[in-house]
Design a protein around this nucleic acid. Sequence first.
DNA 1: CTCATTCCTATAGATTGTCAATAGGTGATC
DNA 2: GATCACCTATTGACAATCTATAGGAATGAG
Lengths: 110, 110
Amino acid sequence: MNSKQVNLLQGTLDLLILKSLGAAELHGLGISRRIEQMTQGTFLVKPGSLFPALHRMEEAGWLSSFWGESENRRRAKYYRLTKAGKGQLVVETQEWKKISLAMNSALEAT
Amino acid sequence: MNSKQVNLLQGTLDLLILKSLGAAELHGLGISRRIEQMTQGTFLVKPGSLFPALHRMEEAGWLSSFWGESENRRRAKYYRLTKAGKGQLVVETQEWKKISLAMNSALEAT
DNA sequence: CTCATTCCTATAGATTGTCAATAGGTGATC
DNA sequence: GATCACCTATTGACAATCTATAGGAATGAG
């Protein structure tokens, strides 16, 4: 077993995906690994969570995709942020900050 | 309308309820108001979210309830934390901190 | 007295996002 | 040419929240 796996809070996966694509184009599993790295191993996003999210977000117009070749010469579908996706990253980041502030202030109450 | 209603992140409602009952016994709507106050109006928990959560948490053994009278002389069901509930509050608080840290560190990545 | 209003609890139905489990194709390696 | 690691993908189940609606009970207005 892992050292206590932490489940995602529903709604945070989109933000993590957007953020992971902020700097570079990545393929599916690359996104997953990047998220694991960005969160210091706290969140492990599994395929059954990742791919539905990617499809959903592409549908929403935040991502675009193209087939390419991975570092290991395998067929891989790469994703990049669209313009709308960059906007959404800003929006969701702000929303997260708002939520995070509100929660922390609640937890500090006496 | 309000200044952009913020939806709860799934999983945070329990923690807010536990925390709201940390200091005093409250009835359902009292909990809702306390949460709104603790989060400076960020989270407005509506009955359709609140009551199912209360029932679920009582079922889980974190809360106990009794019928009493509200400040306005109305029949009201009061909730208090059980011993297990106090433990759960600690657990979920720590979990939130872990998640919050991971998210913030992800959002600060370049 | 009676009618409207506010307070409080409650449930039904729908939606949504995540998880667990499973599958299959395709390069690489030996 | 068999096995392994990599990569995408889907299915079915599940759980939590939201919207909308309901109704009882005390209060206050006229």
